[in-house]
């Protein structure tokens, strides 16, 4: 067929050949459509990498500048809660992967239960995060006007600092813990925001799955949501050691 012999007049936009209803008109085949969707999702995840990239850059710089403040700041975080949350998130990633597998192999029950498990684990993560944030609020560790350096200039007044055996810090360095908590809240806050968006999407997906959705082979949404969920998991895989585990041995 000659490339330039393209019809210039209107004629019937005929789709004689069979194709599933979910194939959009501008795609040639379903394979093209799913590949396209997953490629688009990956590009979106690249923007997410760069979005968090700015925060990680800031973190690395300030951690080098104010290392003692970062150590003291991280001692304020509960390693138990942090580890448990890591466990929850990794497990939810696993259940989500199982959900994608169930959708691929058209297991209705498997999909529904995987999504329910993922949902519960995700909500559990956010619940624990709330407990942690609340504790920070009570101890005036939220950056801003109410921020207090009490725990760091006088560690004996503070249970966590005492337990970690922190030595009193000069006021100058103690004030830098505000930078640590600024980054802590910015990073975990952005991560939690992604979790909340993810949970909202998950609810919609679960609603559709319960009513028998995703069993016709049109599972692009499940797959792409899976990619998103795993990405959020990866961010946490880095946040956990960077924020919670700075030098626990001191």
């Amino acid at each position: 067929m000659d490339s330039h012999a393209v019809a210039t007049t209107a004629d019937a936009h005929g789709h004689e050949h069979d194709h599933p209803a979910y194939l959009r008109h501008h795609f040639v085949s379903y394979e093209q459509q799913t590949e396209t969707a997953s490629f688009g999702m990956w590009l979106f995840l690249l923007t997410e990498i760069m979005f968090f990239g700015g925060l990680f850059t800031a973190y690395l710089i300030y951690r080098n500048w104010y290392y003692p403040a970062f150590v003291a700041g991280s001692h304020q975080l509960s390693i138990t809660l942090g580890s448990f949350n890591t466990l929850l998130l990794i497990t939810s990633s696993f259940t989500m992967a199982m959900g994608v597998w169930s959708a691929e192999t058209k297991r209705h029950k498997g999909l529904v239960w995987s999504l329910i498990a993922t949902l519960i684990l995700g909500i559990g993560f956010l619940g624990i995060k709330t407990v942690e944030y609340k504790e920070k609020w009570e101890k005036h560790h939220i950056p801003g006007d109410t921020f207090s350096v009490q725990s760091f200039v006088n560690p004996s007044s503070d249970a966590e600092a005492k337990a970690a055996g922190d030595k009193p810090m000069g006021l100058d360095m103690a004030r830098k813990t505000e930078v640590y908590f600024s980054l802590y809240f910015a990073m975990t806050g952005m991560h939690a925001l992604h979790m909340i968006i993810g949970i909202a999407l998950l609810c919609g997906m679960l609603f559709k799955a319960v009513r028998g959705g995703y069993m016709d082979g049109n599972i692009a949404f499940v797959e792409n949501f899976g990619l998103y969920w795993h990405f959020v998991d990866i961010v946490w895989i880095f946040l956990f050691p960077l924020l919670y585990l700075i030098s626990r041995h001191q």
Binding site: T57, A58, I61, Y62, W65, Y66, A69, I142, P143, G144, D145, R175, K176, E178, V179, S182, L183, F185, A186
Partner: peptide, 19 residues
């Protein structure tokens, strides 16, 4: 809310913003 990432009075680096 007054976080301290770029604020020099809190130990932040304004040049990081420019980077």
């Amino acid at each position: 809310i007054g976080i301290g990432v770029f604020d020099p009075t809190k130990g932040g680096d304004p040049i990081l913003f420019q980077h």
